[in-house]
């Protein structure tokens, strides 16, 4: 009986006085806001950080190849740049790149057009949906280059075969991404769109496409990368017979003549174009759309 009050007080939290501050201290000792240093500002620029990485890689390359001193296995960075300069301004690299990009754009554009048709059929009917799902699961894992022998028989040695394999490499990944993007548009947004009285084509353009835009953009990027890869591979194999060239053919030809610096220059061009498209085109589209809208961080 005598113990119980002590036990109860042990379980209660300690009593403390209340207080209210009449004045908040005006002059604080600490920094409320101060500008960043120049170094911090520079470090915040993404492109600067990336350029620093590229410079570092180039330096490692140069040091290693100087140490190795075997231009047949690993030409120096400086001689690769010199070869690139030479091939661009005295050789035929420009025309080769132009040729490659022309074929690439033809394949990419027709791939996108076909993907649009497929996705629209899938959106409007259940059988279309099944059709798209079956086709993508069949053909998406099939490497485009495996179709090249068949393409040669069907379309001959011209651009036709190239465009065919490019379409194959673009179509399925773009269709798959776009379609899953449409399917993941939130029910609320769909209801909002219909609440406005939108239907059919206007509903797709005004509501579904912007709402699915992050996935559509991913599809476009993956499609672009697949197309670019397939193109170079196809040219390596196929440029031999067609003779019209392209970047892959440029690489192949220089390898045959053991101009390894030029082989590196060709590969370098592939990388530069890839970087340029990613950073100049896709990044800009992203910044103006999905990032601005807060749909992607």
């Amino acid at each position: 009986m005598a113990e119980s009050p002590t036990r109860a007080s042990e379980k209660m939290p300690m009593m403390r006085d209340e207080f209210i501050r009449q004045e908040i201290q005006a002059n604080l000792d600490t920094v409320v806001q101060k500008p960043l240093t120049l170094w911090e500002k520079l470090y915040n620029i993404t492109s600067l950080r990336k350029i620093a990485i590229l410079v570092l890689l180039a330096v490692i390359w140069q040091v290693y190849s100087s140490h190795l001193n075997n231009p047949l296995l690993m030409p120096k960075f400086s001689s690769t740049v010199a070869a690139l300069y030479d091939a661009l301004f005295h050789g035929e690299l420009f025309t080769q790149v132009g040729y490659s990009i022309r074929v690439l754009l033809m394949g990419y554009a027709s791939g996108l057009a076909l993907a649009t048709v497929l996705v629209i059929t899938a959106m409007t009917s259940r059988i279309g949906n099944d059709f798209l799902e079956t086709l993508t699961s069949m053909f998406n894992p099939l490497p485009a280059i495996a179709l090249l022998p068949l393409a040669l028989i069907w379309f001959g040695l011209g651009n036709g075969s190239m465009v065919f394999v490019l379409i194959h490499s673009v179509l399925w990944s773009v269709a798959l991404n776009t379609h899953s993007g449409f399917q993941s548009v939130s029910g609320t947004l769909r209801m909002v769109g219909r609440n406005y009285g939108l239907s059919g084509f206007r509903y797709i353009i005004k509501i579904l496409i912007p709402a699915a835009f992050p996935s559509i953009l991913t599809g476009l990027k993956i499609g672009w990368a697949f197309a670019w890869r397939t193109l170079i591979a196809a040219e390596l194999v196929f440029g031999v017979s067609s003779g019209s060239g392209g970047l892959g053919w440029f690489i192949y030809e220089n390898k045959n003549e053991l101009n390894i610096a030029y082989v590196f220059a060709g590969l370098f061009t592939v990388i530069i174009i890839g970087l340029a498209v990613e950073n100049l085109i896709f990044r800009n589209i992203e910044a103006r759309t999905v990032r601005k809208w807060g749909m992607q961080q």
């Binding site: 909002v192 609440n195 009285g197």
Partner: peptide, 20 residues
């Protein structure tokens, strides 16, 4: 018979605004 702008809806979800 179908949705229309004469009956505007306000939903519970915060994602009802068009983010773009």
């Amino acid at each position: 018979t179908r949705p229309g702008p004469d009956r505007m809806m306000v939903f519970q979800e915060f994602d009802q605004l068009l983010p773009w």
